[in-house]
């Protein structure tokens, strides 16, 4: 039963991934202006442009171009960069791992902070602590991560000189970007955890547990929290994707050489192979993560009808 569900869920990925690759492929073709002219630069002869069209296969029918794009993409072959002439896959690979690291650390931070804050809020419902936590969360999710990044940088790097302002790699370089990127996620998870906990706490079996004389701690942490985490799991998957996207801004603030910053840099020079490959890689990863989350959600919550 479960296996069948997993197989079906994976099969559902196929049309989505085909759609995603098609959208990314078509970017180059719906952009105003002829790609070969962009690549050739200003003042290129007709002959040069024709050569480029020939070399890149831009004269082929569209569906054929898409098929070769797809079969190359599956093998992680995205051609060569229009700007540097280097292989796209070797250009984006190191960048990708930086962005992945940033997104994973930020997700961990937001789950950790968010769950703790949400549980405290729910347990002390309507108290001053609850109100304060929820207000902070509201600010947290209303704050642009790039501005938070700038402010953190100004205080902890420029004024206090405690942490480095830019870069990525060493432990101290990681702290500020991860806080900047993870805060909004923490806020969303805190709100989610709180409302989920409150719903569970009002359920009959919690009342039964209390009536049986189970201590409050056991009620909260063994019975309530475990069940309250089920809906939170789905949010974590979405958050991870959001952080992959949001990393573009954080990377720009802290001058981190990640994939997002690469895309932004190359938009100006219209380096389409690099832009397309980067966007495709992030979107595919996001789609896979969400399927994984979906599957773990079903495993956690066996009561759900598998249809």
């Amino acid at each position: 039963m479960m296996l069948k569900f997993i197989v079906r869920r994976l099969l559902q990925l196929v049309p989505v991934l085909i759609g995603v690759t098609f959208l990314v492929f078509i970017m180059l073709h719906i952009t105003p202006g002829d790609p070969a002219e962009v690549l050739a630069g200003e003042g290129a002869t007709v002959e040069t442009i024709e050569n480029i069209n020939e070399r890149l296969g831009l004269n082929e029918p569209l569906h054929q171009q898409y098929l070769s794009f797809l079969s190359n993409a599956v093998q992680f072959d995205f051609g060569t960069s229009w700007r540097t002439g280097r292989e796209v896959s070797s250009e984006i690979a190191p960048r990708f791992f930086v962005t992945l690291e940033l997104a994973i650390y930020s997700t961990i931070l937001s789950v950790f902070l968010g769950v703790i804050a949400g549980v405290i809020s729910a347990v002390r419902r309507y108290s001053l602590t609850d109100v304060t936590i929820m207000l902070v969360a509201l600010f947290g999710l209303s704050m642009p991560n790039f501005w938070l990044g700038l402010m953190l940088m100004q205080w902890f790097a420029v004024k206090l000189d405690w942490l480095p302002a830019t870069g990525w790699g060493s432990g101290s370089q990681v702290i500020l970007p991860v806080i900047a990127l993870g805060t909004a996620g923490a806020a969303i998870i805190a709100r989610m955890t709180r409302s989920s906990m409150l719903e569970i706490i009002s359920q009959d079996y919690i009342r039964t547990a209390r009536a049986k004389g189970v201590t409050e701690k056991v009620v909260i942490y063994r019975h309530a929290l475990r069940n309250a985490m089920i809906p939170v799991v789905t949010v974590v998957g979405l958050q991870f994707g959001y952080l992959l996207g949001g990393a573009v801004l954080t990377e720009t603030v802290f001058a981190i050489n990640g994939l997002g910053r690469l895309v932004v840099d190359r938009i100006a020079s219209r380096d389409f192979p690099v832009i397309q490959a980067s966007i495709l890689v992030i979107a595919s990863l996001f789609v896979f993560v969400n399927v994984l989350v979906d599957i773990s959600y079903r495993i956690l919550n066996k009561r759900i009808d598998l249809d």
């Binding site: 049309p15 989505v16 759609g19 995603v20 959208l23 990314v24 970017m27 719906i30 952009t31 105003p32 979405l238 994707g241 959001y242 952080l243 992959l244 996207g245 949001g246 573009v248 801004l249 895309v263 932004v264 938009i267 100006a268 219209r270 832009i275 966007i279 992030i282 979107a283 595919s284 996001f286 789609v287």
Partner: peptide
Amino acid sequence: MRLMDILLAFPGILLALAIVSILGP
């Protein structure tokens, strides 16, 4: 709904980024 799923596959600001890279800043 499949089309919507495809649009949702581009997380956060990434779809907007892709569109702006097509249309220009």
